[in-house]
Design a protein around this nucleic acid. Structure first.
Lengths: 224, 224
DNA sequence: AAGGAAATCGCATGTTCGTGGTATTTTTCA
DNA sequence: TGAAAAATACCACGAACATGCGATTTCCTT
């Protein structure tokens, strides 16, 4: 169940980690003037914020600048989360760099906002996060979806036969030719022949390349 | 480059695929009363819509119900997209079923909206899609991020050294030991030793297993 | 200054792989 | 029913791999 602070008597506790002091201060004042929200701590670096995690009560939400000097915001995400998985982290960034977006979201950020968002929009996003949502800038949301689709797109059909697909499975899972032969009750030679044909169809020459290609292009369906 | 129809003289062409006729009609009237938008065709099944793709001009956006009788909306996504990759598909659904969400987004849906969204919200979403965004219901966005984080969580740290990570990269990309040695200006023996150590740390005994493990557990960062 | 971890290089041996062949028996489908 | 495709099986040889050992150098930390 998602925990919301709506009904608590305590206000939502928000930390800011942002090196630009004027932006930090203006954000803090906006938050502190919002009913039900308190910006109890603000920091200019991740290191200081992490230190405060040892002594201060945990925040509900951290607004985290990604482009910080010292420890990058991305590395910090895991560390904040290691204190409590319930801490929501919303990334603030100037530009929507693909890699940063991807990495931050992989590390468990709850949202991703561009800094040119209005302050109202940022406050709204905090509320959205607390309600179990994920505030995403429009274009970033699309990039996320594109990555999503790319991860699962089957581009090419190499016209493998059923038997070949089956053997590819075992190959990818790390079995040797002999082990595959044993598992499928075939002779080593038969497996060898099939693998030769697979190599031709996939245009590779080594086992390593087959496995790599199979993963990259989603040539098999994971069973778990 | 993202194509927008904003500056065209032609209105945005929107198809509806939805089996509830009253909902379909009310949606159509809202769209047709919106300046710059036309709902030229509406359908009660995917099959009929796909048939129309053969004869009618392609739509810019399709609002697609997922829970349709006959062909599921999810299967239809690929088919619509196969006509033109530029057709944006926005999913309409009553409930935010995890699997449906995941599958639809994997197939290339541009957005995902719950049917209890206001009609204004839906019109706004169409505009957002055309502007290169991805309208996502708040809770769905969070689920997407959760899946994202789960897919890329690095569970175990095998304590590989920098050099070992580097060699693992090349190993995974399909190079032989000798090729790695050449690329890093090392002797074959050095690479061999590193690989031995990698095997120990990852607890594997074959190249195939290393590659498999590396992909499964995201032991390396993709560079693109 | 000392200790340890990491990186480097070397050798030897048995195993597995990659690839060139050829050939027989199903299975499939027009 | 008859040809094509797929699956099965075999051999041989050089290349690449896995793994046992030992050794020196470089760099970091205390």
């Amino acid at each position: 169940m998602i925990k919301t602070n709506d009904k608590d008597n305590f206000p939502v506790n928000i930390w800011l980690v942002e090196d630009n002091s004027s932006y930090r201060k203006s954000l803090a004042s906006v938050i502190n003037s919002t009913p039900g929200m308190i910006s109890s701590n603000t920091f200019s670096t991740c290191e200081r914020a992490l230190k405060a995690m040892e002594t201060e009560p945990f925040p509900d939400v951290i607004l985290l600048d990604i482009g910080l000097p010292g420890m990058s915001g991305i590395k910090a995400i895991q560390k904040f989360k290691s204190y409590s998985y319930d801490i929501h982290i919303v990334i603030l960034t100037i530009y929507d760099d693909n890699d940063s977006v991807f990495n931050a979201l992989c590390e468990g950020a709850s949202g991703y906002l561009l800094k040119d968002s209005t302050q109202d929009k940022i406050v709204d996003s905090i509320k959205e996060v607390l309600a179990g949502g994920a505030p995403l800038n429009m274009h970033i949301a699309q990039k996320v979806l594109q990555l999503f689709a790319k991860l699962n797109s089957k581009k090419v059909d190499y016209e493998l036969t059923e038997r070949e697909k089956e053997i590819l499975q075992h190959l990818v899972s790390g079995l040797t030719k002999q082990q595959i032969a044993d598992k499928l009750f075939l002779s080593f030679h038969t497996v060898n022949t099939h693998i030769k044909n697979i190599y031709k169809k996939l245009q590779v020459t080594t086992k390593a390349a087959v496995i790599s290609k199979a993963y990259k292009e989603n040539l098999f369906r994971p069973k778990e």
